[in-house]
Design a protein around this nucleic acid. Structure first.
Lengths: 341, 341
DNA sequence: AACATCTGTGCAAACGATTGCACATATTGA
DNA sequence: TCAATATGTGCAATCGTTTGCACAGATGTT
């Protein structure tokens, strides 16, 4: 049989000639001070010699803390998420926590199922990158007191901690950039309004357009049902077909912008000569497209890292208040936006 | 305090009026048959009513099986890995197993550390996507009897299960495709020889070139120290500087191919008119490059799923033999390869 | 009718760690 | 010198499940 975690606290104790509880106290930094330095040294030496590693399962049973947290994401193959996950792991790892992942494909039933199996594994908290604005899982966690942090997207519920991008700023950067280039009629292809990102970017767009004194024509805002290339293509084709005479498009994300590229070329036009396009996210390789995409870069890694840290804080200091944090994005100017001629 | 997994097997037992062990037997499919159907029904009803979920931590302590497996990958933000991970999760999830992830950035010390924390968490097995040909972790797992599956890359050790791409076939597809287009002097930019993929593709290239009766000139094989764009650029520039008169390059992976694109354009040449290029992996978005990259598509998702299934098999049927499995890749012809003129 | 064999359930001991409590011994103060 | 306090360690219960063993009652055999 595999000699998995063969050496237990009792082995160490027997070898040193003390009681297991003493070994436990030595190994716990908080109680180490109560033990004679000599014994501390001996226990540490023997533990190292035997290669003792505390059994997290046993510890978890006793303390009701597993140092494990659950992370729900829509789909790890969407290039948006890996940096967030990496950030989460780094944010957690510094404190000894480990993440378990669940892909939900944005399907509510899978989310529920994933949360159930994570709770069976006694996770100490949850990070959701999947939240819808009215997500029932969010409500459930709040009700049951399970520490929760939302990342990337937020929800409408209050009393929930979240780390998201400053979408208003991102949209403002894109719009002001286009204004500087001389564009006055700017269209927006919005994301789904059921997601906080879709809604926030849409609302911000309308506000900024007014604030900047540009042409505020509601017809210039197209709706999509998903942040996808197909939807971007469809919505952009609609926009073009209506003869609205816009010279630039602010897309709610990069995939929608890709769809817009296609619709523009399908219509016999060119980007950026006829229509400038901006994206949102700065996905890998959008700098290699023709033309390279001007887009708003979201600090995904930092979003994840903050989420990890925040969750640890929530778990370890029980009464820490819920906070909504936004991180600042950055405009990356490339070849898909040019001055109007 | 949070009422985490408040309802225990004892609660169910008390409510039904039976002993906890009876409830346990009802819940375990293997022992359910020994209990009176009436009681089975009642226990199930009460368990459902109370929302009972077995505490995996307690179960793990008792059974010494956590239904958790550790997955080591170099870097989740490398687009190669997300589909593999997704596949692993699907392959495991069907059997109730969950994965915990560790990013190692190909740093040996981090690998060791990650394995240590995973073992402290009592993982039932390991999947490594990080293996070097002489990886010490592989040796350690074999020695200690910890179930192990290698995916994507394999190691030289024997007695180890692995699921990898059929690199020989992939290279053959690329070379034959170029031969069909009339190329006779074909260069190869190889990956690091310390990785099984780098070595296998290199060896296969030399074999296929001979087998197909093409010009076998060792000078046409360039070496790199990493599967990166920078190294591809450097190696390809070297190749071009030597005036070797090749008309096509088989790159060991897509990133190296990207570097080759750059070196070709730096030299004032064009791809594919002057030099055809093939990649390996079919990363996302390489179909959007100019020119779109002809490449070998590896079934990454399937690789992962097979790895997950294989590991479950290894864990649940102790004496199952180690097997090395290869999956068939596919050539995706795009615009970076043309006939010689 | 007496005994052997099944069946279904309960009992209690694990798994490996943590932690409140008790109790020696050492230290301090008067 | 004696009581009061402090200090360091051991004891034993506990976390929630699983599982070998025991045992009562039912069933089968001769």
């Amino acid at each position: 049989m595999a000699s998995r975690s063969r050496v237990t606290i009792r082995d160490v104790a027997d070898r040193v000639g003390v009681h297991p509880s003493t070994v436990s106290r030595v190994l716990n930094p908080a109680t180490r001070g109560r033990i004679t330095p000599e014994i501390v040294a001996k226990v540490n030496a023997v533990a190292a010699e035997l290669g003792y590693r505390p059994n997290q399962t046993a510890r978890g049973l006793r303390t009701n803390r597993t140092q494990t947290i659950g992370v729900l994401i829509p789909d790890i193959t969407n290039p948006l998420f890996p940096p967030i996950i990496r950030g989460i792991e780094d944010g957690l790892g510094a404190h000894g926590y480990t993440a378990i992942l669940g892909n939900t494909d944005n399907i509510a039933a899978r989310e529920t199922e994933a949360v159930a199996t994570m709770r069976a594994r006694q996770v100490d908290g949850l990070i959701l990158a999947t939240a819808r604005r009215d997500d029932p899982i969010v409500a459930e966690c709040i009700a049951e007191g399970l520490p929760l942090v939302l990342v990337n997207r937020t929800a409408d519920a209050d009393g929930v901690s979240s780390i998201v991008n400053d979408d208003a700023l991102g949209i403002a950067l894109a719009v002001r950039h286009l204004k500087t280039l001389g564009h006055t009629r700017i269209a927006h292809i919005a994301g789904p309004r059921s997601l906080s990102t879709g809604e926030a970017r849409r609302r911000s767009f309308l506000e900024i357009i007014k604030a900047e004194g540009l042409e505020a024509d509601e017809a210039l805002v197209a709706e999509t049902s998903a942040f996808s290339e197909d939807e971007g293509l469809r919505a952009c084709a609609d926009l073009i077909a209506q003869d609205l005479e816009f010279t630039a498009i602010v897309a709610a994300n990069d995939l929608i912008a890709l769809g817009a590229y296609e619709a523009i070329s399908d219509a016999g036009l060119t980007c950026p000569d006829d229509i400038s396009v901006t994206g949102f996210n700065d996905m890998p390789f959008v700098d290699r497209l023709t033309p390279p995409l001007t887009t708003v870069r979201i600090p995904h890694y930092e979003l994840g890292r903050e989420a990890g840290r925040r969750l640890v804080e929530l778990i370890e200091t029980p009464d820490s208040p819920a906070r909504a944090t936004t991180l600042r994005p950055e405009l990356i100017v490339r070849g898909s936006t040019v001055a109007v001629t």
